[in-house]
Design a protein around this nucleic acid. Structure first.
Lengths: 148, 148
DNA sequence: CATTGACCTCAACCTTACCTGAGGTTTTAT
DNA sequence: ATAAAACCTCAGGTAAGGTTGAGGTCAATG
């Protein structure tokens, strides 16, 4: 563990290992995120990565966004909207997570639609190429041929 | 197009190209599915793939299961439960799609939980390592440290 | 002050789900 | 009969999201 300050008992700067332990991602994942422009830090005299404590929020935000179904590049884009490269504040977090909530909602609605179609089609079992909504997600009517 | 029988106007056996056109997957995907044990057919005298019409239902089932979030190997396992390697009937389809519907339902419920947590935490913005449900998906209580 | 654990870089590898192209054969249509 | 379209195999590539290992340096501890 990176050395602790006397007063707070909390390290003011974190090593990769510290961040890994406390954020639940591995060191190699942090390296990887760095190559993808998702996280950044500075280097100490010995070329080792050091991070401000705000990296923890940043990593947390990344993981939550991933769970919501965003790709790392989408997440990077969102994080890049932060003015002057600062770490996300609570206000930033609210803005981003609001957008992500909406994307998540869309995803959920698609899955609900699929589920309802499954419910219908489990009953009918037809899987008709042209009439079954499961076969025909875009509601495209083509020439009529059954599949079985 | 593979030659059609005089009577029905429908080919009794299908080439890869036929299947590709009618199932909406590419020829290379069919080759790929074959290497993964998801589909199979026989070969004609000239070593070309020929499929029974039931391949179309099979491919349809595969694509629907993928949309529901199953991996190809999970789908293969499900298809392997079919007795004596026959193609899925409507009854089989009901059994499998019922199971998949339940898996889909689980997925949806997880996403709904995430959405509700986002709704809560967009308000609070804390992202507390130990108290925020978003940071702590498994409800694991650890030692208490805030992240910011 | 030596050792041991933590770090460093870089390249290579992994998994999933395919796609692309080369080089050659078969089928179908004219 | 011949040309075009479709098919074949096999190797290698792509994208995402990482992991692993080699070879070498740095830093915390007895």
């Amino acid at each position: 563990m990176t050395k602790r300050t006397k007063k707070s008992g909390l390290p003011q700067e974190l090593s990769v290992g510290d961040v890994a332990r406390r954020s639940g991602v591995t060191v190699s994942t942090l390296h990887f995120y760095e190559t993808k422009g998702l996280v950044s830090g500075y280097r100490n005299a010995g070329n080792q990565r050091r991070y401000p404590r705000s990296i923890l929020r940043r990593v947390a935000v990344i993981r939550i966004a991933q769970r919501a179904g965003l790709s790392l590049s989408e997440i990077r884009e969102a994080l890049e909207t932060l003015p002057d490269g600062r770490q996300p504040t609570i206000r930033d977090w609210r803005r981003m997570s609001g957008a992500w909530r909406d994307a998540l909602q869309d995803r959920i609605e698609n899955l609900l639609k699929l589920r309802d179609q499954l419910d219908l089609c489990i009953g009918c079992g037809c899987l008709s190429l042209t009439d079954c909504p499961l076969r025909n997600p875009g509601d495209i009517k083509g020439k009529s041929e059954e599949i079985t």
